Amino acid sequence: MMPSSRPMLTAILRGLRGRCPACGEGRLFEGLIKQAPVCTHCGEPTGEIPADDGPPWFTVLILGPFLAAITFLVSMTPSVPLWLALPILGIGAIGAVLLMLPRVKGVFIGILWRLQKNNQT
């Protein structure tokens, strides 16, 4: 019997918001991307879920093509000097990664949590 996709989607959306995949109330992170050991609301041990290298790898896979294309287009535009454009693009790239990485890590944790719960039942 196939498990319902609804709980997986719920866990993904909760992770995207940085919330506990079990209850949706507690915070998933203590800092920017440091996992909280347990949910402060329901006590689920979310700190034991190993997200490891997946979130940074996937973040680069998502942002890389866009950032490379933007860098190429800006460098080919003669009206913007490179000495000004490249530092601004670098700051923008760092900002994009800092905005995206916690969300991608939350999604990974939500998926891994759901898969662990499916294997336990």
Rank of each mutant, 00 (worst) to 15 (best):
S4F: 06
R6H: 12
R6S: 10
M8Y: 12
I12T: 01
L13W: 09
L13N: 01
L13F: 07
L16A: 12
R17A: 14
R19S: 10
R19L: 14
P21Y: 10
A22I: 00
G26K: 07
L28W: 02
K34N: 09
Q35R: 12
A36N: 06
V38I: 08
C39Y: 08
T40Y: 07
H41M: 08
G43K: 04
G47E: 00
I49G: 01
T59M: 09
I62V: 15
I62Q: 12
L63T: 01
L63G: 03
F66K: 02
L67T: 00
A69E: 04
T71G: 12
F72S: 13
S79R: 08
V80C: 11
V80W: 13
L82W: 05
L84K: 12
A85G: 07
L86C: 03
I88H: 04
G90R: 03
G92Y: 11
A93K: 03
I94H: 09
I94C: 12
L98Q: 13
L98S: 05
P102A: 09
V104W: 08
K105S: 04
G110S: 08
I111Q: 01
I111P: 00
I111Y: 01
L112H: 01
L112T: 00
W113I: 01
W113R: 03
L115K: 13
Q116N: 14
N119M: 15
T121N: 15
